[in-house]
């Protein structure tokens, strides 16, 4: 299996499938990585590992659901997509730099720092691009996504040619390596979730005002562009921290799906944030449990599937904007008219 994977790696890296390269973002992570523990025996609730994983993934889901609300309401739901792709060159560059200066390129903190730097650079450039005439926000996201990701792939192919660059253990990162999360990872995710929640709590009403009525916020003298940057910074933090847990593409799901689902349940931003964070935490935990029970099921995709399931239910049954609720309301209105 390992040998197969290596050959596969070699061919993929030179520019193959996009999604596999998304996994390859984590190539670097795979390279350094806390290798997945193979201890998938009978799982019990009291199992220490399961607890660690549960807490870690739920915290991540919580933070992503919370932050995702603001990205969604700023009409930048897919900003996480652009961002997570934009981290690739940072990870590869950090690895290369560390190797060049003789350090240990596989250190997690160092790679995450690289990811953060290139994520921030990408977001900053995206804000600049939007100012150009005729460049709409979606095009700005698309440009950042593809060019940064292209640069990332170029760097990854270079990483592959360095001595330390060859390593296996990649497949766990495509699916995310939630099942093999360590205590250290959980601590990091949990503190990130707390920090993100505190920041959102502190700036809640300003963020609400910004998302609802930017013109009014400007007129009232709020630092609109700084608040915008704050939202992007929160998304960046969640994405970078989440990368190693659920993988590149699936972190987008955690940022997009829970807020979209929560929107069906409520018409008020406060409850929406809570519901969204709750859905995120619940589905992340459910995914982790599912993969702990059935080793066949990868945790990351299971989290997303739980999210999507909740989304589907919300879409139909959500009392505020769900399809059924709206149908009933329309029939009500029609009945009153006749």
């Amino acid at each position: 299996m390992n040998g197969l994977c290596d050959t596969w790696l070699g061919s993929m890296i030179i520019g193959g499938g996009n999604w596999l390269l998304d996994g390859l973002t984590l190539l670097a992570l795979g390279v350094f990585g806390t290798a997945p523990t193979d201890s998938q025996g009978p799982v019990t609730w009291a199992d220490y590992n399961t607890q660690v994983v549960l807490i870690g993934t739920s915290c991540l889901g919580f933070a992503a659901g919370l932050v995702g609300c603001f990205a969604l309401l700023r009409r930048q739901a897919l900003v996480g997509d652009a961002l997570s792709h934009a981290t690739l060159p940072g990870i590869a560059a950090a690895f290369l730099l560390a190797e060049f200066f003789g350090g240990d390129g596989k250190r997690l903190e160092w790679l995450l720092l690289g990811a953060t730097c290139s994520g921030i650079l990408g977001m900053w450039m995206m804000m600049q691009l939007e100012r150009l005439p005729r460049i709409k926000p979606d095009a700005a996201m698309g440009i950042i996504l593809s060019v940064f990701f292209g640069a990332g792939i170029v760097l990854v192919t270079i990483v592959q040619q360095t001595e330390a660059g060859h390593a296996a253990g990649l497949e766990s990162f495509i699916y995310g390596k939630a099942a093999s999360m360590l205590r250290r990872d959980t601590m990091m995710i949990a503190s990130m979730a707390v920090a993100v929640s505190v920041v959102v709590g502190l700036f809640f009403k300003e963020l609400k005002l910004l998302c609802f009525d930017e013109g009014f916020a400007l007129a009232r003298g709020y630092p609109v562009s700084r608040l915008n940057a704050l939202i992007l910074a929160l998304v960046t933090v969640v994405t970078v921290i989440g990368l190693q847990a659920v993988g590149l593409i699936l972190i987008i799901a955690l940022l997009v799906i829970p807020p979209s689902a929560a929107r069906f349940w409520t018409n008020s931003l406060g409850p929406m944030c809570w519901i969204s964070a709750g859905i995120g935490a619940m589905s992340a935990a459910a995914g982790a449990i599912a993969s702990a029970w059935a080793p066949d099921l990868p945790s990351g995709p299971m989290m997303v599937m739980t999210c999507s399931g909740i989304f589907a239910i919300s879409l139909i049954c959500g009392p505020a904007r769900g399809v059924l609720a709206r149908l009933a309301r329309r029939r009500d209105a029609a009945g009153r008219r006749t």
Partner: peptide, 22 residues
């Protein structure tokens, strides 16, 4: 479903991707 354009795309493609991985 009156879901935001970008969000709709995000919901669908991440779900399909997850199905693919599974």
């Amino acid at each position: 479903g009156r879901v935001d354009e970008g969000a709709a795309l995000g919901v669908v493609f991440t779900t399909l991707f997850a199905i693919g991985l599974i």
